[in-house]
Amino acid sequence: MTAEQPPALALRGLVKRFDAKTAVAGVDLTVPAGSFYGLLGPNGAGKTTTLSMAVGLLRPDAGGAWVLGHDVWADPVRAKQLLGVMPDGIRLFDRLSGAELLAYHGLLRGMDPAVVDQRAAELLDVLALADAGRTLVVDYSAGMKKKIGLACALLHGPRLLVLDEPFEAVDPVSAALIRDILARYVTGGGTVVFSSHVMEVVERLCSHVAILADGAIKRVGTLDEVRGEQTLEQVFVTVVGGRTATGEELAWLSR
């Protein structure tokens, strides 16, 4: 990080409590510009909560988030222009067709209609969604929904992409397509932050990794720094701490 180049995403002391439960307990993270950043964690670790606070969807109880030096909560207009977001487990405006949805997002971002048309057509083509025609997004398959969500996040050419579980419920063909697009995006100078619990994808794609568990960062650094001599999965299981089956339980399942 140099003085003239602020980090693509900086999180400082993020805290979020839901009732009595602390979902995120003070997360600090610095995502250098041009990196491909994987946020790893088991279910319920606070990945979605952290990313929601980073992009302005959920107000943190303490701490702040900066996108390329712009405070997400104090200067949201500028920060949100630089950001492309694909949330997980959140509905799209799914009573629109794919093309309608893209046009909607583009115009909401204040883009020129001609540019929206041209980019929407290209995105639908590349993501193999053009065949769907006037099918409403609500009738898309899970993989198609992920792809149209990604297209919405990419449409305005953001400098930082924040993706929550982009590879969840996606078939291998679509996953490969999404991987290629993201890799090209990073090569072209963009920054990607995404959450996942699929080690194999993270190991293949990421330059940097952070492991989140119980609402706190347990390991952080470049991929090689984090995994050292071991595989990423070994590190992950050690950090998170799980139990292994002994073969004694659930005996009634076999007969």
Binding site: A103, G106, L107, A121, T135, D139
Partner: peptide, 20 residues
């Protein structure tokens, strides 16, 4: 829920913005 919706596969006409 999704029954009764017809002609969904028909090809789209016009650009994205005109469709919206």
């Amino acid at each position: 829920a999704s029954s009764g919706r017809t002609s969904t596969r028909s090809p789209a006409t016009g650009t994205a913005v005109t469709q919206l």
